[in-house]
Amino acid sequence: MKNVFLDFEKGIEEFEAKIEQLRFAQDNSALDISAEITRLQAKSQGLTKSVYAKLTPWQISQVARHPLRPSTLDYIKHLFTDFEELHGDRNFADDRAIVGGLAHFNGQTVMLIGHQKGHDTKEKIYRNFGMPKPEGYRKALRLMRLAEKFSIPLITFVDTPGAYPGIDAEERGQSEAIGKNLYVMAGLRIPIICIIIGEGGSGGALAIAVGDTSLMLQYSVYSVISPEGCASILWKSADKASDAAEILGITADRLKEMALIDAVIPEPVGGAHRDYPAVMQSVRQALQESLRKLQDIPLETLLQKRLDRLLGYGRFKINKPD
């Protein structure tokens, strides 16, 4: 698929266009211009590296939302085998904004659940832009219970702008569906690994992101409210989104510093969408390590650690009485 360049990638886009032109010219000419192409490629690579070395939080959230960024189904395809997708919440519908099912990871059975966005307009609409309705969260809950029943570790992929804000979603209890998942995940008797692969949009993300290990891809974001939403409430203008992104502390590095996530998974130069094999390799490695660590811990200890961690969240001061 043809790459989509972001606003701050104009320079890179120009290089890439030139390289494309030269390649086209080379096909029709006897002259060897491959040296020139190589030179330009190196320049483009260098520029990408320097642009990505100093991305602002707002730019990072653009990368996190990039249409070609690997989605849950891409990770499932590249990292797992024998995937059987399981559908439906058994009550109302099958929500296509959340996918899930059983698969093998290095030969071991795992349960996979993730938000699913789309790469093109048609798929985005089909997936409701990765915004689940209550039936999506209830499907996830059903699969979690299934995994628990058979002592299968759970891996979740988080990538949503948020839970769907719609009339039907409210009618069917969006709040209850999210709250129930938080409650159940806190005590689910299997190891849970959560990976933020793109956008971690508020409660809609958290509803499948409570677990023992939280990993975050380098250019993904995780936030209590979208920068645009925050800006329109506090500054009364969505144009201040980049200020909001800065102050909300939504990037992997900041969140790691604040101990709100466990580890940052590095991405290839220019972001995950530029090099699928490279990012798959990093995620595979991180998953292997996390899974091995969690499986070494006795279940009761694991659950206690999970609870301690959940109850430990927050920054406040204690006023000592004199």
Partner: peptide, 22 residues
């Protein structure tokens, strides 16, 4: 809802308050 001014710390209070109910 969650308090924006504390960023992700606020979001995590959703998990914290719900977990303790167990």
């Amino acid at each position: 809802g969650a308090r924006m001014q504390e960023g992700l710390f606020s979001l995590m209070q959703m998990a914290k308050t719900t977990a303790v109910l167990e």
